[in-house]
Design a protein around this nucleic acid. Structure first.
Length: 262
DNA sequence: CCACATGTTCATTT
DNA sequence: AAAATGAACATGTG
Protein backbone atom coordinates (compact mmCIF):
# COMPACT_ATOMS: atom_id res chain seq x y z
CA UNK A 1 0.00 0.00 0.00
CA UNK A 2 2.71 2.34 -0.91
CA UNK A 3 1.64 5.89 -0.22
CA UNK A 4 3.69 8.05 2.11
CA UNK A 5 2.77 6.24 5.35
CA UNK A 6 3.60 2.81 3.97
CA UNK A 7 6.91 4.02 2.62
CA UNK A 8 7.74 5.51 6.00
CA UNK A 9 7.03 2.14 7.56
CA UNK A 10 9.11 0.38 4.92
CA UNK A 11 11.92 2.73 5.89
CA UNK A 12 11.64 1.78 9.54
CA UNK A 13 11.61 -1.88 8.56
CA UNK A 14 14.59 -1.43 6.29
CA UNK A 15 16.57 0.48 8.90
CA UNK A 16 15.93 -2.05 11.63
CA UNK A 17 16.76 -5.08 9.50
CA UNK A 18 19.19 -4.15 6.77
CA UNK A 19 21.52 -1.30 7.69
CA UNK A 20 25.22 -1.96 8.25
CA UNK A 21 25.17 -5.57 7.19
CA UNK A 22 27.66 -6.83 4.64
CA UNK A 23 25.96 -7.64 1.38
CA UNK A 24 27.20 -10.93 0.08
CA UNK A 25 25.17 -11.20 -3.08
CA UNK A 26 22.47 -9.46 -5.07
CA UNK A 27 19.99 -11.57 -7.00
CA UNK A 28 18.05 -9.77 -9.72
CA UNK A 29 15.07 -11.81 -10.76
CA UNK A 30 13.38 -9.06 -12.78
CA UNK A 31 15.79 -6.67 -14.47
CA UNK A 32 12.82 -4.85 -16.03
CA UNK A 33 12.20 -2.98 -12.79
CA UNK A 34 15.69 -1.45 -12.89
CA UNK A 35 16.04 2.15 -14.08
CA UNK A 36 19.27 3.71 -15.34
CA UNK A 37 21.14 0.58 -14.42
CA UNK A 38 21.41 -3.08 -15.28
CA UNK A 39 21.55 -6.38 -13.49
CA UNK A 40 25.27 -6.57 -13.96
CA UNK A 41 25.83 -2.99 -12.93
CA UNK A 42 23.80 -3.18 -9.75
CA UNK A 43 25.57 -6.35 -8.70
CA UNK A 44 28.98 -4.82 -9.28
CA UNK A 45 28.08 -1.73 -7.33
CA UNK A 46 26.29 -3.22 -4.35
CA UNK A 47 27.90 -6.59 -3.73
CA UNK A 48 30.42 -6.61 -0.88
CA UNK A 49 29.25 -3.18 0.26
CA UNK A 50 26.69 -2.32 2.98
CA UNK A 51 23.75 0.05 3.38
CA UNK A 52 24.65 3.13 5.38
CA UNK A 53 21.39 5.02 5.80
CA UNK A 54 18.02 5.69 4.24
CA UNK A 55 15.68 8.61 3.78
CA UNK A 56 12.14 8.98 2.51
CA UNK A 57 10.77 11.66 0.21
CA UNK A 58 7.19 11.40 -0.94
CA UNK A 59 6.69 7.81 -2.02
CA UNK A 60 10.40 7.23 -2.64
CA UNK A 61 12.91 5.57 -0.36
CA UNK A 62 16.54 6.51 -0.91
CA UNK A 63 19.27 4.24 0.35
CA UNK A 64 22.91 5.21 0.51
CA UNK A 65 25.49 2.52 -0.08
CA UNK A 66 28.92 2.42 1.56
CA UNK A 67 30.64 3.37 -1.69
CA UNK A 68 28.55 6.55 -1.99
CA UNK A 69 26.20 5.26 -4.62
CA UNK A 70 22.50 5.78 -4.01
CA UNK A 71 19.49 3.59 -4.64
CA UNK A 72 15.97 4.94 -5.12
CA UNK A 73 13.13 2.53 -4.45
CA UNK A 74 9.60 3.19 -5.64
CA UNK A 75 7.04 0.62 -4.55
CA UNK A 76 4.52 1.09 -7.31
CA UNK A 77 1.16 -0.27 -6.33
CA UNK A 78 2.04 -3.54 -4.63
CA UNK A 79 5.70 -3.30 -3.61
CA UNK A 80 7.11 -3.99 -0.13
CA UNK A 81 10.18 -5.33 1.66
CA UNK A 82 10.47 -8.76 3.18
CA UNK A 83 13.40 -9.62 5.39
CA UNK A 84 13.77 -13.28 6.12
CA UNK A 85 16.16 -15.80 7.50
CA UNK A 86 15.67 -18.18 4.62
CA UNK A 87 18.98 -18.79 2.91
CA UNK A 88 18.33 -17.43 -0.53
CA UNK A 89 14.96 -16.09 0.52
CA UNK A 90 13.39 -16.57 -2.87
CA UNK A 91 9.65 -16.09 -3.09
CA UNK A 92 7.30 -15.95 -6.09
CA UNK A 93 7.28 -12.15 -6.23
CA UNK A 94 10.79 -11.34 -5.18
CA UNK A 95 12.14 -8.96 -7.81
CA UNK A 96 15.50 -8.17 -6.22
CA UNK A 97 17.16 -9.91 -3.29
CA UNK A 98 19.96 -8.58 -1.14
CA UNK A 99 21.62 -11.51 0.56
CA UNK A 100 23.63 -10.54 3.60
CA UNK A 101 26.69 -12.26 5.04
CA UNK A 102 24.71 -13.02 8.19
CA UNK A 103 22.59 -15.41 6.14
CA UNK A 104 19.46 -13.27 6.01
CA UNK A 105 17.88 -11.80 2.91
CA UNK A 106 16.03 -8.60 2.15
CA UNK A 107 13.63 -9.03 -0.74
CA UNK A 108 12.08 -6.26 -2.75
CA UNK A 109 8.72 -7.91 -3.37
CA UNK A 110 6.29 -6.65 -5.94
CA UNK A 111 3.59 -8.88 -7.45
CA UNK A 112 2.53 -6.38 -10.09
CA UNK A 113 5.97 -5.14 -11.01
CA UNK A 114 5.05 -1.47 -11.11
CA UNK A 115 7.83 -0.79 -8.65
CA UNK A 116 11.21 0.61 -9.70
CA UNK A 117 14.75 0.52 -8.45
CA UNK A 118 16.95 3.31 -9.75
CA UNK A 119 20.63 3.88 -9.32
CA UNK A 120 21.12 7.59 -8.81
CA UNK A 121 23.93 9.97 -8.01
CA UNK A 122 22.22 12.72 -6.11
CA UNK A 123 18.91 12.87 -4.28
CA UNK A 124 18.18 16.51 -5.02
CA UNK A 125 18.90 16.09 -8.70
CA UNK A 126 16.60 13.08 -8.76
CA UNK A 127 13.78 15.02 -7.09
CA UNK A 128 14.29 17.85 -9.51
CA UNK A 129 14.36 15.60 -12.53
CA UNK A 130 11.15 13.92 -11.42
CA UNK A 131 9.72 17.37 -10.72
CA UNK A 132 8.45 16.25 -7.32
CA UNK A 133 6.68 18.79 -5.17
CA UNK A 134 7.46 19.23 -1.46
CA UNK A 135 7.07 16.21 0.79
CA UNK A 136 3.60 16.15 2.35
CA UNK A 137 4.99 15.90 5.88
CA UNK A 138 7.68 18.52 5.42
CA UNK A 139 5.83 21.34 3.71
CA UNK A 140 4.79 24.26 5.89
CA UNK A 141 1.30 25.71 6.01
CA UNK A 142 2.16 28.81 4.03
CA UNK A 143 3.63 26.91 1.10
CA UNK A 144 0.83 24.38 1.22
CA UNK A 145 -1.74 27.11 0.76
CA UNK A 146 0.31 28.59 -2.05
CA UNK A 147 0.16 25.36 -4.05
CA UNK A 148 -3.56 25.75 -4.62
CA UNK A 149 -3.55 29.43 -5.45
CA UNK A 150 -5.26 30.08 -8.76
CA UNK A 151 -5.55 26.37 -9.55
CA UNK A 152 -8.71 25.39 -11.31
CA UNK A 153 -8.24 21.65 -11.02
CA UNK A 154 -10.13 19.38 -8.66
CA UNK A 155 -8.77 19.46 -5.14
CA UNK A 156 -8.37 15.71 -5.04
CA UNK A 157 -6.47 15.59 -8.32
CA UNK A 158 -4.07 18.24 -7.08
CA UNK A 159 -3.55 16.55 -3.72
CA UNK A 160 -2.55 13.39 -5.53
CA UNK A 161 -0.37 15.09 -8.11
CA UNK A 162 3.22 14.32 -7.10
CA UNK A 163 4.45 17.40 -8.91
CA UNK A 164 2.53 19.59 -6.46
CA UNK A 165 2.81 17.56 -3.28
CA UNK A 166 4.78 14.35 -2.86
CA UNK A 167 3.43 11.40 -0.94
CA UNK A 168 -0.34 11.39 -1.15
CA UNK A 169 -2.11 8.75 -3.21
CA UNK A 170 -5.67 7.72 -3.90
CA UNK A 171 -6.58 6.28 -0.53
CA UNK A 172 -5.12 8.99 1.66
CA UNK A 173 -6.47 11.74 -0.55
CA UNK A 174 -9.93 10.33 0.15
CA UNK A 175 -9.27 10.15 3.88
CA UNK A 176 -7.84 13.65 4.15
CA UNK A 177 -10.77 15.18 2.24
CA UNK A 178 -13.24 13.21 4.32
CA UNK A 179 -11.72 14.41 7.57
CA UNK A 180 -11.79 17.95 6.24
CA UNK A 181 -15.40 17.81 5.04
CA UNK A 182 -14.28 18.81 1.56
CA UNK A 183 -15.86 17.35 -1.57
CA UNK A 184 -13.24 15.81 -3.89
CA UNK A 185 -14.60 17.67 -6.92
CA UNK A 186 -14.29 21.17 -5.51
CA UNK A 187 -11.97 23.27 -7.65
CA UNK A 188 -8.91 24.24 -5.66
CA UNK A 189 -9.33 27.98 -6.23
CA UNK A 190 -12.82 27.89 -4.75
CA UNK A 191 -11.50 26.91 -1.35
CA UNK A 192 -11.06 29.60 1.26
CA UNK A 193 -7.84 30.03 3.20
CA UNK A 194 -9.66 28.60 6.23
CA UNK A 195 -10.55 25.48 4.26
CA UNK A 196 -6.94 25.04 3.22
CA UNK A 197 -5.79 25.40 6.81
CA UNK A 198 -8.21 22.66 7.83
CA UNK A 199 -6.99 20.56 4.92
CA UNK A 200 -3.36 21.09 5.90
CA UNK A 201 -3.98 20.16 9.52
CA UNK A 202 -5.92 17.07 8.57
CA UNK A 203 -3.24 16.00 6.11
CA UNK A 204 -0.75 15.96 8.97
CA UNK A 205 -3.15 14.33 11.36
CA UNK A 206 -4.10 11.56 8.92
CA UNK A 207 -0.56 10.80 7.75
CA UNK A 208 0.82 10.73 11.25
CA UNK A 209 -2.00 8.58 12.52
CA UNK A 210 -1.43 6.17 9.63
CA UNK A 211 2.24 5.87 10.47
CA UNK A 212 1.44 5.37 14.13
CA UNK A 213 -0.86 2.44 13.46
CA UNK A 214 1.57 1.02 10.89
CA UNK A 215 -0.83 1.68 8.04
CA UNK A 216 -3.11 -1.15 9.09
CA UNK A 217 -6.49 -0.03 7.78
CA UNK A 218 -8.50 -1.97 10.31
CA UNK A 219 -6.74 -0.18 13.14
CA UNK A 220 -8.03 3.22 12.13
CA UNK A 221 -10.63 4.69 14.47
CA UNK A 222 -14.29 4.36 13.53
CA UNK A 223 -14.56 7.98 12.50
CA UNK A 224 -12.08 7.47 9.67
CA UNK A 225 -13.13 6.73 6.11
CA UNK A 226 -10.61 4.02 5.24
CA UNK A 227 -12.07 1.20 7.37
CA UNK A 228 -15.38 1.75 5.56
CA UNK A 229 -13.94 2.26 2.10
CA UNK A 230 -15.59 -0.61 0.22
CA UNK A 231 -18.78 -0.88 -1.83
CA UNK A 232 -21.72 -0.46 0.53
CA UNK A 233 -19.53 0.97 3.29
CA UNK A 234 -21.02 3.61 5.55
CA UNK A 235 -19.75 6.79 7.09
CA UNK A 236 -19.66 6.47 10.88
CA UNK A 237 -21.56 9.73 11.22
CA UNK A 238 -23.99 9.69 8.28
CA UNK A 239 -25.07 7.10 5.73
CA UNK A 240 -23.70 5.20 2.80
CA UNK A 241 -20.57 6.46 1.05
CA UNK A 242 -20.74 7.54 -2.57
CA UNK A 243 -18.37 6.16 -5.18
CA UNK A 244 -17.30 8.30 -8.14
CA UNK A 245 -14.32 8.62 -10.46
CA UNK A 246 -11.94 11.54 -10.07
CA UNK A 247 -8.93 11.78 -12.31
CA UNK A 248 -9.54 8.21 -13.38
CA UNK A 249 -9.35 6.93 -9.80
CA UNK A 250 -12.11 5.44 -7.71
CA UNK A 251 -13.15 7.94 -5.06
CA UNK A 252 -15.17 7.36 -1.89
CA UNK A 253 -16.74 10.24 -0.02
CA UNK A 254 -19.65 11.01 2.24
CA UNK A 255 -22.20 13.14 0.37
CA UNK A 256 -23.59 14.55 3.60
CA UNK A 257 -20.31 15.44 5.21
CA UNK A 258 -18.55 16.56 2.03
CA UNK A 259 -20.94 18.87 0.26
CA UNK A 260 -20.32 20.33 -3.18
CA UNK A 261 -21.72 23.84 -2.99
CA UNK A 262 -23.13 25.84 -5.96
C1' DC B 1 -14.56 -14.30 -19.15
C1' DC B 2 -15.04 -9.67 -16.80
C1' DA B 3 -14.02 -5.78 -13.67
C1' DC B 4 -11.00 -3.87 -10.57
C1' DA B 5 -6.77 -2.67 -7.79
C1' DT B 6 -2.61 1.55 -3.00
C1' DG B 7 0.94 4.36 -9.22
C1' DT B 8 3.21 6.69 -13.07
C1' DT B 9 3.56 8.17 -17.70
C1' DC B 10 2.20 9.40 -22.16
C1' DA B 11 -1.04 10.76 -25.79
C1' DT B 12 -5.13 13.21 -27.04
C1' DT B 13 -8.58 16.58 -26.52
C1' DT B 14 -10.72 20.63 -24.68
C1' DA C 1 0.00 26.36 -20.34
C1' DA C 2 -3.72 23.97 -17.66
C1' DA C 3 -6.78 20.59 -17.07
C1' DA C 4 -9.57 16.33 -18.07
C1' DT C 5 -9.68 11.76 -19.93
C1' DG C 6 -8.22 7.33 -21.29
C1' DA C 7 -4.90 3.96 -22.17
C1' DA C 8 -0.90 1.33 -21.19
C1' DC C 9 2.07 -1.18 -18.11
C1' DA C 10 1.82 -6.69 -15.26
C1' DT C 11 -0.51 -9.55 -12.39
C1' DG C 12 -3.50 -11.16 -8.72
C1' DT C 13 -8.24 -11.37 -6.81
C1' DG C 14 -13.15 -11.77 -6.65
Amino acid sequence: MPELPSVEIFKQYFDSTSLNQNIKKVVVNNPEILVETSKKNIKTIVESEFFVSSSRYGKYLFVSVSNDFLLAFHFGMTGFFKYSSLKEGQTPHSRISFIFKNGNTLNFEDPRKFGKLSLIENINNFIEKKKLGPDALEINQKNFIKIFEGRKGYIKTLLMNQNFLAGIGNLYADEILYQSGIHPLIKANRLKIEDLVVLYNNMHMVLQKAIKIKDIMLDFPENFLLPHRYPGGECAEYGKLDIIKVGGRTTYYCPEKQVLKD
